[in-house]
């Protein structure tokens, strides 16, 4: 008897809990869960939206098409190259920036603000400014020229266009992760460093053997956020190429391709959702792999 009343009580309590959560659950359901399910549903169909809504079941057809769509392969290749280069570099740069700001220099606060500025600027504006700097007669070529280095047609040459976006993005995203590192750095107890000093460790040794291991959970977070962010590269390459992914498909990313299929060409919405689904799986796998290789939980 007592047992059943307990379970009844817990049931009402759970009911109350859900009732309180209902607003959030409803909103999440409508704006997050439902679109995801809808996208998965659409990815198995040929979707004709214009001139009368028309759905035609095609099974795995859309996914099969990805295997012979060259542009999808190019987009995937570009995106993977971009991720492999950008994530490590921006993580490293963020760590170095944070460490230098944590070293106790004069004017630390000033530099903290200056470093953080690129992150505060909208990416569209940043891209436009960078496009001026990347202009054939722009600032970057001017600097390269005065240093007697070769100049490039950054925007028009397929071999460097993606590189130009990488440089821009590393510069713009690293400060954001720098702030996260900075917060974590201030959490490392001084006693660790004192103990190391007593043992006669050099500055570099302290950095590699105390700072870096202590930052591991944060590094894990930074890398995962970086992975997700870089896999979803869109706005910069969209503005850079005027939406085409050119020159010669060199700045075509997966999300840009999805956009093109969903909104530019007619009747390929289903294929676009199949690509989006594939991208979600790729990001999921990459994140799981990253978690497997870094044993972050051990520190918490």
């Amino acid at each position: 008897m007592a047992k059943s009343s307990f379970s009844k009580k817990s049931r009402t309590e759970a009911g109350q809990g859900y009732l309180f959560m209902a607003p959030v659950l409803i909103i999440l359901g409508i704006f997050v869960i439902a679109p995801i399910l809808c996208a998965i549903y659409l990815s198995f169909h040929k979707v004709e939206l214009l001139g009368g809504y028309n759905l035609e079941f095609r099974g795995l057809d859309n996914f099969m098409k990805i295997t012979f769509d060259d542009r999808a392969h190019i987009a995937l290749k570009n995106t993977v190259i971009y991720v492999v280069i950008v994530v490590p570099l921006q993580t490293l740069l963020a760590l170095v920036l944070a460490a230098s700001l944590n070293a106790g220099m004069k004017g630390e606060k000033f530099f903290r603000i200056v470093y953080f500025l690129p992150t505060l600027t909208s990416s569209a504006v940043l891209t436009l400014i960078f496009m001026w700097m990347y202009n054939q007669n722009g600032l970057i070529n001017h600097i390269l020229d005065t240093l007697h280095l070769p100049t490039y047609n950054w925007i028009g040459d397929p071999s460097v266009a993606l590189l130009a976006i990488m440089i821009m993005n590393i510069w713009a995203t690293a400060p954001f992760f720098m702030v996260i590192y900075l917060a974590a750095l201030q959490d490392i107890p001084d006693s660790h460093y004192e103990a190391a000093e007593l043992d006669g460790a050099t500055g570099l040794q302290k950095f590699w053997h105390i700072t870096v291991p202590n930052l591991r959970p944060v590094t894990s977070f930074v890398v995962i956020m970086g992975l997700i962010g870089t896999f979803q590269l869109f706005d910069q390459s969209y503005i850079f190429s005027g939406g085409s992914g050119g020159p010669n498909n060199s700045t075509l990313t997966v999300v840009l391709l999805i956009y093109q299929y969903a909104f530019k060409s007619l009747g390929t919405m289903g294929y676009a959702t199949a690509l989006a689904f594939l991208l979600a799986i790729i990001i999921l796998v990459a994140t799981l792999l990253q978690r497997k290789f870094s044993k972050e939980e051990s520190l918490y």
Binding site: S244, P247, N248, N249
Partner: peptide, 22 residues
């Protein structure tokens, strides 16, 4: 015809690489 946008995109991409001498 309706396929011209697709043809244009692909043509321009590859023609550029020939134009650049690649």
């Amino acid at each position: 015809g309706p396929m011209l946008p697709i043809v244009m995109n692909n043509f321009n991409n590859q023609f550029l690489s020939a134009y650049l001498g690649e």
